[in-house]
């Protein structure tokens, strides 16, 4: 059902955890649909220097969370805002069709965290 890349990120998720005094925190999803993703950001001079995540959800939810952290680290805020859920799932060699809308929220969580960061620094 899942690609090898999804299974790799699911079994060895990168950047799990929280960041104390994070510059931005974003959360999307809710328990009803079975997926909650929380993203923590460290930002230095408009560049994302660290990202961590915590996720409640299925294999796809955990894998996309892990992937988005890898993709976001080192990017500028603007570059990170241009990341889409679609790009995350493509980087994982695709997700099963029924997972595309419910568990593919990782970029949204990242964008929420950026919004939170901007709100703070504004």
């Amino acid at each position: 059902m899942y690609s090898d890349k999804v299974m790799d990120h699911f079994t060895n998720p990168r950047n799990v955890g929280e960041i104390e005094n994070a510059d931005g925190v974003g959360e999307v999803g809710n328990a009803s649909c079975g997926d909650i993703m929380k993203i923590f950001l460290k930002v230095d001079e408009n560049v994302i220097t660290d990202v961590k995540f915590k996720t409640f959800g299925c294999g796809a939810a955990i894998a996309t969370s892990s992937m988005v952290t890898e993709m976001a680290i080192g990017k500028t805020i603007e570059e990170a805002l241009a990341l889409t859920n679609q790009a995350v799932s493509e980087a994982l060699d695709g997700l099963p069709a029924q997972k595309m809308h419910c568990s593919n929220l990782a970029a949204d969580a990242l964008h929420e965290a950026i919004k939170n960061y901007r709100g703070k620094s504004a």
Binding site: D35, F56, G57, C58, G59
Partner: peptide, 10 residues
């Protein structure tokens, strides 16, 4: 509590 079933099954 706190975890989702499919990820446990996998």
């Amino acid at each position: 509590a706190y975890i989702e079933g499919e990820s446990l099954l996998l």
